[in-house]
């Protein structure tokens, strides 16, 4: 009986150790700098692409050659910053 209990205790310790290890691995899992930069840059580029696209379409329809592009390029850039802000906030939340 005593022998059995000892075995079980050892098993319990082993499991606890493994659980701790698992936690350590999870907390130390960090994204690489390049991956992070890539994520941010795609957000900005995607918003800029949409902004420029809308600008060109608006210019085509209303014949306001440079103005639509200029305005929507600026909107696109601002939307890009908004996207980056949201990504950052999501990352902050995860921590």
């Amino acid at each position: 009986m005593n022998y059995k209990n000892k075995n079980l205790e050892e098993l319990g310790k082993k499991i606890n150790n493994l659980n701790d290890k698992d936690k350590n691995i999870k907390s130390s899992k960090k994204e690489s700098g390049a991956g992070f930069g890539f994520k941010i840059s795609t957000e900005i580029i995607a918003a800029l692409v949409v902004g420029v696209g809308i600008g060109l379409i608006v210019d085509n329809y209303f014949n306001t050659k440079p103005i639509g592009l200029i305005i929507f390029f600026i909107f696109g850039a601002l939307a890009g910053f908004l996207n980056v802000y949201r990504v950052m906030r999501r990352i902050e939340k995860q921590r």
Binding site: I45, A47, I54, F72, F75, L82
Partner: peptide
């Protein structure tokens, strides 16, 4: 509102480009 709309429309592009 235009900024939010552009931000919304940029979702599929950033998703696919990544």
């Amino acid at each position: 509102i235009p900024i939010e709309v552009i931000s919304y429309l940029s979702r599929p592009i950033s998703l696919s480009v990544r």
